[in-house]
Amino acid sequence: MSTYISIAVLLAVALLTVGGLYLVARYTAVAPDPLERLPFLSGWEPEEHALSRYHARWYPLTLLFLAFDVEMLFMYPWALVVAKDGIGAVVEMFVFLGVLMVGVVWAWREGALRWI
């Protein structure tokens, strides 16, 4: 039980420290309220809001990542049973990883890892 109390205490201390800093800064800063300004554009004014549909050209990479990341879900429990299940577990996992790696190499040859 004390395990999770410790984590809760840590969280509380961290949040209080951050909150405390903001409080202290209200007194130490030249003015307590934030200044609202136009975003920095090398000295020009924005023609539109920056928040927009950002064109992430590496989106094929994110799919590749997702496939591998889901695999990690199995990797953690697997780590606990390797010793018990012996070489069979190793073969199963690495055949699976090998298949995924073939996929990565294929995606690489298709150019998914280059986007500029």
């Binding site: 130490t28 030249v30 003015a31 934030p34 609202e36 300004r37 136009l38 809001h49 928040l51």
Partner: peptide, 13 residues
């Protein structure tokens, strides 16, 4: 930084 004023931008999240 503790002496510096905080900043926000127009229509920031």
């Amino acid at each position: 930084l503790m002496r510096q004023r905080r900043r926000t931008t127009v229509a920031a999240d």
